[in-house]
């Protein structure tokens, strides 16, 4: 039962990784790389490492995504400044 669950999670993770790599839209890529981390934290919970699961859920899917989004918004802001000048 738990094996089937891990296989399903793994397939979703691999699909998310392929979307993150292939997608033309950067926002989609960033969000799906956050999805990978979120699902990885569930797998850590199944592998009985709750400490790692907590850290991965908070950092991998929360703060890393936010840091990526901040960098993207800064690049858009630089673009806008060029357009204005």
């Amino acid at each position: 039962m738990i094996t089937v669950f891990i296989i399903i999670l793994g397939i979703i993770m691999i699909l998310a990784a392929i979307i993150a790599v292939m997608s033309k839209n950067l926002l989609t890529a960033i969000i799906s790389s956050g999805v990978i981390s979120l699902l990885a934290s569930i797998i850590y919970l199944i592998l009985s490492a709750p400490d790692v699961a907590m850290t991965e859920a908070a950092i991998g899917s929360g703060l890393t995504t936010i840091v990526f989004l901040y960098a993207l918004s800064r690049i858009k802001k630089i673009n806008k400044e060029i357009d204005d000048d």
Binding site: P50, D51, M54, T55, A58, I59, L63, I66
Partner: peptide, 17 residues
């Protein structure tokens, strides 16, 4: 319990976020 300095620090950072 599960948790510790790293996890707590991340939660504090997300509060500031």
């Amino acid at each position: 319990t599960p948790g510790g300095g790293f996890q707590g620090g991340v939660i504090i950072a997300s509060a500031f976020l």
